[in-house]
Amino acid sequence: MIRRFLAPLFLLLAVAVVAQPNAARAEITPEQGMAFIENIANKGINEVIAADVPQQEKTQRFRDMFLANFGTESTARFVLGRHSRGADPEQLDRFQQLFREYNVLIWARRFDEYNGQELKVTGTRPDDDKGLFVESQVVNTEGGEPINIVWRLREREGGPKVVDIIVEGVSMALTYRSEYDAIISRSGLSGLNDQLAQKVQELKGG
């Protein structure tokens, strides 16, 4: 009796297990991933960083580009880690927005540091069956050692999205996660949100 009741459940489970990898499998081919990152780099340099427009316009252009190409929702969820479970949906929502804006603003501050560097995509590696790593190097035109940057891609909303950037072995997502974990443990997600909101204000003012 119980077995008969459970059988369909097992079948459902089996289907789910078999179907899951297929559903989750990244459809991003190495060529597609490399072209995607090359496109981001070219557009980023020509239309944003080195474009001859005021800083405010640059920031806006960057914001559009960032929202279109980065899977910030996935990153934000990863960054919160265990704290995202059972958290107040309103605070989660607030965090998503603040995290996105915070990232836009800190990148925007760095445009001035641009000094003719070039980004060279050097290869790809599968990220299990979940996505793709695109490897690249930032080459300084004045010499000096190249900086290794790895982009972690996931298929989201029907296209590749960047979910993490790993600079010389340091993952941005993991660093945020570790930083925020300390704050949330002390003062909760709402405490973190308040501090992030303050940072965003400071960055806007500066």
Partner: peptide, 12 residues
């Protein structure tokens, strides 16, 4: 300037 907890950022 940017990090909320500079110490934890550097540690990580």
């Amino acid at each position: 300037e940017e990090s909320v907890d500079f110490y934890a950022t550097i540690r990580s």
